[in-house]
Design a protein around this nucleic acid. Structure first.
Lengths: 338, 338
DNA sequence: GTGAAAGCGCTAACAT
DNA sequence: ATGTTAGCGCTTTCAC
């Protein structure tokens, strides 16, 4: 039913070898007249190379895997899009496996990819602590995005949390704020420590004192931002600005300030982190730090391809800088606050 | 380097045929002792079947494609997750192609899938008007999700917009509202007509009159919801409730009411549509209609598999019902409004 | 510049 | 119940 190379060769009056040389764009020399005859025969017959057969012969699969915790997570989908875009139009097929933050599912996903002879894997948001239980760490080329791999000798594309937190804090300083409170994440998260460090860096840089009552520990959820801001408001000398280390907590802080009769940004400026979709819909629209997810995906794709195609670049952490998205909640758009 | 069936057969002291029969779970009878020997040899050698070779022989690819407009669209990613979940652990590989609402990219995507001999395609959010230009409509099994295919004889899993709009409208009626305004979508969208019809159905059912000044045409964006609500507020006899046919317009309406000094839901109840993530974060949290994206994805996967495996069920539209998500903006949680 | 032929790893018809 | 063998469609040596 389907037309094969043999059919094309027959119609063109050449051997399969020649037909193959023409149609697989081999660099073996072929007479231009013959070439044309083969091409024409292929066109007429509607020849489509059987990639399975080709791959069997070539001992390759041109299959890459993406193992991720949850496609429906916005940032993850952005990274994924970057990866898909990078490979769009290429010979590679990208197959995707969702692991739902479950280590066993993760292991199954990697096994499935090995079974399909995937040539490389990109892990998004995945610690994959057990990757070496399945395949020796270097057996299959892999790149980690948005999560650090515990063993160093892997490509890891991660946000430069420290730098990005500096960005946010400095933005507030430059708007004239001197008493800047900070709402951090829960203990145990790398992001928590790094963002806190970024906040501290800027205080030091501008000779502002670090005041423990103006630093709260949240749990990434809205309510914890609310409570933290409430606490700040009761201080004898409350902050004029709050940097919340994610957008949900920033929104919680804004609600607390509103409930306390304060205006944002007129009375207190607020800056968030992550650039979630809701930040531009709420009132006031939240100034925040955006991470280039798409770009991170592209970088991951490029680094994986490098490994797969053998030009293994030196591996390591690739920190990625974010960008301030200035909206209403920081006051920059309205007045020179303070 | 990699261990083949021949290796296993040799070690087990049997022929490749027997080894194959054991390891490919064929139903051909094999002596249980031999079976054991083969299994053991395979385990010892760490045999992994070469799927490329198997697929070449079986003339199958076990590859399915998902063509979608944008993975980073929340509802799309939900559907995708349903599909991935359905095929998790199966023999099928799912490859995904992003088309960015571009018809040419869409065509390229389908071509790429045909080139890879995909056995079926799920289109999400894609009209794919040109599918028959590439392959005759029935050449490759396919299912459409969240978009109706222009030719009838395809599986289409789409939201039952009319029913879902009835749900929202009826919810307001049951809360005692009699003057319910409606903010529709722009002309040209099927969803616009269907949701409007659902709104009308309920008015009729409860003997409420359809009042043109209480029906506005929006463009799905926040600002159009704002303007519509503003117009409603200026009516001599303004509505006590607004049903906006998407969440962004619902939020816009809430802002307009606030700016007009009205309280939501105390003065005016608002119901949205889509259950976007922000609806539970804003103030008041928006009552809305949720679509079962994950379930729609699973259904699509099941219907595709049916086609691929030859038991072609009768094709047609599969309308999917949504569910009311009751939050604050409709007033149901606070009081028996009105 | 072209062709004949081997063989990638596997399955299944056919023979025993 | 087991083995022999052909062949899936392709690429690539090797010979001419």
């Amino acid at each position: 039913m389907s037309v094969t190379l043999t059919d094309v060769a027959q119609v063109a009056g050449v051997s399969v070898a020649t037909a193959s040389r023409v149609l697989s764009h081999s660099d073996h020399p072929v007479n231009s007249q013959t070439r044309q005859r083969v091409q024409q025969a292929a066109d007429e017959l509607g020849y489509r190379p059987n990639l399975i057969a080709r791959n069997l012969r070539l001992e390759r699969t041109f299959t890459l895997g993406v193992v991720l915790e949850n496609v429906a997570e916005f940032f993850t989908s952005l990274i994924l899009r970057g990866i898909l875009d990078y490979f769009a139009g290429s010979a590679y097929s990208i197959i995707i496996l969702n692991t739902y933050y479950d280590e066993r599912t993760e292991i199954e996903a990697v096994k499935a990819l090995i079974r399909r002879s995937a040539e490389g894997i990109i892990f998004i948001d995945t610690a994959m602590h057990s990757v070496e239980d399945i395949a020796s760490p270097n057996a299959i080329p892999s790149v980690f995005v948005n999560r650090r791999y515990k063993v160093a000798e892997k490509h890891c594309i991660i946000p430069d949390n420290r730098h990005n937190a500096q960005l946010a804090t400095e933005h507030l300083v430059k708007l004239g704020h001197r008493r800047i409170a900070y709402i951090g994440g829960p203990e145990g998260w790398e992001a928590t420590y790094e963002r806190h460090a970024g906040y501290c860096d800027v205080l030091t840089q501008y000779n502002l004192s670090y005041q423990p009552p103006m630093v709260a520990e949240g749990d990434w959820q809205l309510a914890s931002g609310y409570q933290s801001a409430q606490r700040f408001a009761r201080l004898p000398n409350p902050p004029t600005a709050i940097f919340a280390s994610n957008d949900r907590m920033a929104l919680g802080a804004i609600y607390a300030l509103h409930d306390d009769g304060k205006c944002v940004p007129e009375d207190v400026a607020v800056v968030g982190f992550d650039n979630r979709a809701f930040t531009e819909l709420v009132r006031p629209a939240i100034t925040t730090v955006s991470l280039p997810g798409h770009e991170m995906g592209q970088t991951a794709a490029r680094l994986l391809l490098n490994q797969v195609e053998g030009q293994d670049l030196p591996r390591g952490i690739v920190p990625t800088c974010g960008q301030m998205i200035v909206r209403e909640s920081c006051g920059a758009l309205h007045t020179n606050s303070q």
